[in-house]
Amino acid sequence: MQTFIEQLPVVIGALNVGFLQTLKLFAVTLLGAFPLGLIIAFGTLSKIRAISLITQFIIWIIRGTPLMIQLLIVYYFPGLVLHNPIWGGGEQGRFTAAAIAFVINYACYFSEIYRGGIQSVPIGQTEAGLVLGMTRRQIFFHVTLLQMIKRIVPPISNEIITLVKDTALARIIALQEIIWAGQAFMKGSHGISGAIWPLFFTAFYYLVFNGIVTVLLAKFERKLDYFR
């Protein structure tokens, strides 16, 4: 039986590898879901009724079912139903599948926050832009967007902090993120088994990372304090 001091570097090393995967999934989800959410928001706000209804239907499906089921479907559907296992079997394939499920899921949540943000900018702002001869696109990017961002920082912050922890769900398709790495020491890994303390360490990783995210978001919120 190794001592704790001997085990610690082994565990930390494994957790770091797992956490890197967690971070990657977190970053890719944000990068994908931020713009995709905006497109979906425009869909629900579309004056063309069919587009608006279809996007609202998609949002209903995605928000109405567990992310865990969506992960399983995205990962297994191509192989089991279409007989075309596009993801391959490796960690890279699992990551791609997880990232796609996460991006779609979070984009739907973001889109509703965006929609609320867009609708909360007074119509007078758009009208002022119109009478000054601006195009709709210019009005959105130069007038509405920043005001919308200012309004959505608090609710988006909530989603981002939830996302940090939701990444753990990717374990269901055996993505080797940090909880997977921590749990491995219970079953046995790197010559260590029956150890639950590495799992507590994973909680610490989440806490610290969410602390950093919270501080950064608060900083960003303050940056937008210069106008009302």
Binding site: E127, A128, G133, T135, K150, Y226
Partner: peptide
């Protein structure tokens, strides 16, 4: 049409009751 109107509306200026300055 929208694009026709955008050019033509510059013949007019409008000052609103609620100012509608761009806050940022």
């Amino acid at each position: 049409s929208e694009s026709q109107i955008r050019k033509k509306r510059l013949h007019f200026g409008l000052v609103f009751q609620s100012f509608n300055l761009f806050p940022q």
